[in-house]
Write a protein that binds this DNA or RNA. Structure first.
Length: 482
RNA sequence: GCUCCGGUAGUGUAGCCCGGCCAAUCAUUUCGGCCUUUCAAGCCGAAGACUCGGGUCCAAAUCCCGGCCGGAGCACCA
């Protein structure tokens, strides 16, 4: 009994320690672009835990740097849009830049409790102090002096770069990363959302730590890059008498097909015109996946299967594609699309109309495709032929190749003979189709019915699954996968 | 330089906390075969892994120590 229990493989996400009574979890992006596949992992896994244990899922925009990680006003909405599409409906949405007012009193309280001091060391000087474990003179200031200086930061007496508020940890801490970290600095540049309303901005460790407490966060999952934050923030929690949430870390994610993706790099590339936008197939964003016809369920299943290991992982889109194929294959209509079309002239009684099933197994009717003595086939198919070859034009008839240049054939019959090479084709008056792929583009001719598939995922036979995104001249489709 | 964290098949993952059911799970991938009016799907089969060295123990993927490899932090970025 117990033995077979232990054998049972764990399904889904690993258990969360101390989550039995429900959880409060958050995903905290910087809105400097739309969510990427990396963000999707955070959104999906956090929200999935909330679904599993009950509680609250919060989206919190950590947008407290108006300059170096300047937020994009549109990106806030993009996140919410993509969250909903991913099935991660937030119970609460927080914007840090709108909550600065709440941070100031906490900073002041921290000073009162002797947990922070205003440090006027030049950046480089402090760096040296930190390396050598030397306490600077400002560190010894009285609480009153610190409160006075804090006011001077707020009222503009102290200029940008002249002072920061530091949390007192331990200048002899064995890990230099933990020593007296900065909580606030002066930034006079306007913030895209709140303008020049504030000149003293919190840094991530302060903002995040305080918000996690304010929001009642029970569990934090964050990247390994923030692994030291816990140690830093615990000092602040201890000064204030708060209880620190449980923390889990996860490693860096890379995807073979995209490399590592940083939002800021993408943003630059888009601004430089290397990509046409945030949703084109070459870009690893959630919206690009959506436009390519990747289902959110496929992404969810994939991310949940990944779990939350601390190992850095380097994955392949193949698994996501395989997951998506299972979802999309039973639904997608089949259509003919001929890339690099070459005209084929056929002599004989070629049927004038083809009846092709919309789906190979699900009986949902037929497409009527006009045929006749002039058709188009793929250049790559033609190149594989020799004069005399018997070929079946799918759902139409059998022909024999009589010439390659120009491409000619003669009608053989409609009977299903023994198994011969089968290719697809496009009618002479087919519609122009352009397919954008992660690694390029294909252009060609397709059956007219493609124009009925706007917004849908279809399978171009012998080509792959695509999503039809625009009906026009040409019709525009994004490639999902084979 | 200081500090922290990882290392199971090509990729990802289960098992590791609480050593024996592990000649190691599942998925993907690749390769065969069957089926088939798509090079899709489906079905069947195969391939492929515990980073290395010590130690503890009757017994180690699992515990301990060390090496190697990889990642991260040491910003008035997030």
């Amino acid at each position: 009994m117990q033995l077979s229990e232990k054998k049972e493989p764990d399904k889904g996400l690993p258990k969360l320690e101390g989550a039995e009574g429900g959880v409060v979890m958050r995903f905290a992006p910087n809105p400097n672009g739309p969510p990427t596949l990396g963000s999707a992992r955070g959104i999906i896994v956090n929200s999935e835990y909330v679904k599993k244990y009950g509680g609250k899922f919060i989206i919190r925009f950590d947008d407290t740097d108006p300059v170096k990680k300047r937020p994009m006003p549109e990106a806030y909405g993009w996140y919410l849009e993509d969250c909903n599409w991913l099935g991660a409906h937030p119970d609460q949405v927080i914007v840090a830049s709108e909550r600065i007012e709440q941070y100031y009193p906490i900073a002041e309280e921290l000073i009162r409790r002797g947990g922070a001091y205003v440090c006027r060391c030049p950046q480089a000087a402090f760096k040296e102090h930190k390396e050598k474990g030397i306490e600077c003179i400002d560190r010894g200031q009285s609480i009153e002096e610190n409160l006075e200086l804090w006011k001077k930061m707020l009222d503009g007496t102290l200029k940008e770069g002249e002072a920061v508020l530091r949390v007192k940890t331990d200048m002899h801490h064995k890990d230099p990363a933990i020593r007296d970290w900065p909580a606030f600095r002066i930034v006079t540049a306007p913030h895209p959302l709140v303008g020049d309303k504030y000149r003293v901005w919190p840094l991530l460790d302060f903002e995040s730590a305080v918000e996690d407490h304010l929001l009642g966060t029970t569990h934090i999952i964050r990247g390994k890059d923030l692994a030291d934050s816990g140690s830093r923030q615990r000092y602040l929690y201890s000064y204030l008498g708060w209880e620190y949430p449980r923390v889990i870390h996860w490693g860096r994610v890379k995807i073979h097909q995209f490399g590592s993706f940083s939002t800021s790099k993408l943003r630059k590339a888009i601004e430089a015109g290397e990509y046409s936008g945030w949703d084109e197939p070459r870009v690893p964003t959630v919206r690009a996946m959506r436009c390519r016809g990747i289902r959110s369920e496929a992404l969810r299943k994939f991310m949940i299967d990944l779990g939350v290991g601390e190992t850095d992982i380097s994955l392949s889109m193949d698994s996501i594609y395989a997951e998506n194929r299972k979802l999309v294959d039973p639904e997608a209509n089949r259509r003919f699309f001929v890339w690099e079309p070459v005209e084929l002239e056929i002599e004989g009684d070629v049927p004038l109309m083809a009846h092709a099933p919309l789906h190979p197994t699900d009986e949902r009717g037929f497409r009527e495709i006009p045929a006749g003595n002039r058709l188009f086939i793929c250049r790559s198919d033609l190149e594989g032929f020799r004069v005399g070859d018997n070929i079946r034009l799918k759902d139409l008839c059998n022909v024999q190749i009589t010439s390659l240049e120009p491409a000619r054939a003669r009608f053989l019959g409609k009977d299903m003979g023994k198994r011969i090479k089968i290719i697809h084709w496009a009618p002479a008056d087919g519609v122009k189709v352009r397919v954008l792929k992660p690694d390029g583009m294909d252009e060609g001719l397709g059956e007219a019915g493609i124009a009925e598939e706007l917004g849908k995922v279809v399978q171009f036979e012998r080509y792959g699954f695509v999503r039809v995104n625009k009906i026009g001249e040409p019709i525009l489709a994004y490639f999902a996968h084979r």
